[in-house]
């Protein structure tokens, strides 16, 4: 167990290092000069050149990378080219927003997927099953921009239940913050719930064929007991895998959803920073996303061994 964790931590460092190299190179091959963007189109070439030297943009790339990464290791992600605020400060504002959206979306997804998956697997071939399959299919096929607008149209403009867009930090006004988050969370969560429903259904159907399920019935358990005590836990592994991958991508920000609902999250931040060639912000945000994905994968691996005792976490080869 300990050796597993140590090995994974080591691997995490390697992955983050590789990501840092890639993101740094990619950002720097983008056309557009940050110095020019900062000074404006009318600036004289001399002034731009002077600023480039000041910003270190004329140093060889590996020197720039080394300067940046040694600061990152010390917890300093640099300063925004645009307004000179520390990147860590910017991230501190944006991460909670994205985190809140992710958590609520995931909650929405689970709330729908668990019952829908269980019902459609245990009532295979009935109207229940077909409706949930239909739901899953629509959930996967509806593009988020359309669903988002549809939800605003129905629930904000039509019924007036929720405010259409905006963001309030949770600690300022929890109620309003939640009300604002519900529609974006549904927009993001529906898609995941559809995927999880399909995954849970097929995984449950397979598990329900197992001989230990028959043993459960032979013990005198009814269907409910068999599903909840014996089948569900065995069927959860693929569901957890998909959840992990999806939640990882949610933490990268749901750009379209954030734009529609004016949620100031990470996705918007990255897009805007790319447009303004604000390299330190892009690099910092992407590093955080990479960290989040690696961390969630690690958590998922830990969960596997909790769910299924046959999966041993060991330092060596699997």
């Amino acid at each position: 167990m300990v050796s597993f964790i140590l090995r994974r931590l080591g691997l995490m460092v390697v992955i983050l290092f590789i990501v840092s190299v890639i993101i740094f190179s990619l950002v720097n091959v983008l056309p557009g000069d940050p110095a020019l963007l900062k000074l404006g189109q009318e600036a004289s070439p001399e002034a731009v050149e002077k600023l480039r030297i000041e910003m270190g943009l004329n140093d060889p790339l590996y020197v720039q990378y080394f300067n940046w990464i040694s600061n990152v290791i010390q917890g300093d992600l640099g300063r925004s080219y645009i307004d000179n605020t520390a990147v860590t400060e910017i991230l501190k504002q944006k991460i909670p927003v994205t985190l809140q959206l992710t958590v609520i979306s995931f909650f929405v997804a689970i709330l729908i997927a668990l019952p829908a998956g269980i019902i459609s697997a245990s009532r295979k071939g009935t109207l229940w099953d077909y409706s949930s399959t239909l739901f899953a299919l629509s959930g996967v096929s509806i593009p988020p921009f359309f669903l988002g607008i549809l939800l605003i149209f129905i629930f904000s403009i039509g019924l007036g239940w929720f405010p259409p867009s905006g963001y309030t930090p949770f600690w300022q006004d929890p109620m309003r913050s939640l009300m604002l988050m519900i529609l974006p969370a549904i927009t993001v969560g529906i898609r995941l719930s559809a995927e999880l429903t399909r995954m849970l259904r097929s995984s449950l159907l397979e598990v329900l064929q197992s001989e230990y399920i028959r043993t459960g019935y032979a013990k005198g358990l009814r269907e409910k007991g068999v599903i909840f005590k014996h089948a569900l836990r065995n069927a959860m592994i693929p569901v957890i895998t998909v959840s992990g991958l999806q939640v990882g991508s949610f933490l990268g920000g749901a750009v379209i959803t954030e734009t529609i609902f004016a949620v100031p999250g990470l996705g918007q931040l990255v897009v805007n920073s790319i447009l303004t060639r604000d390299f330190p912000v892009v690099q910092g945000a992407v590093m955080f996303m990479a960290f989040a994905v690696v961390f969630i994968n690690f958590t998922v691996d830990m969960l596997y061994s909790v769910l299924d005792p046959r999966i041993k976490l060991s330092g060596g080869a699997k």
Partner: peptide, 25 residues
């Protein structure tokens, strides 16, 4: 419902495959 009270209680059954007849988790 009536049958589930008899199963495992008055009539029990064991199966061919002990490897897969027990719940692994």
């Amino acid at each position: 419902k009536q049958m589930s009270k008899i199963r495992g209680n008055e009539i029990s059954m064991i199966f061919q495959e002990p490897m897969t007849s027990l719940n692994p988790v």
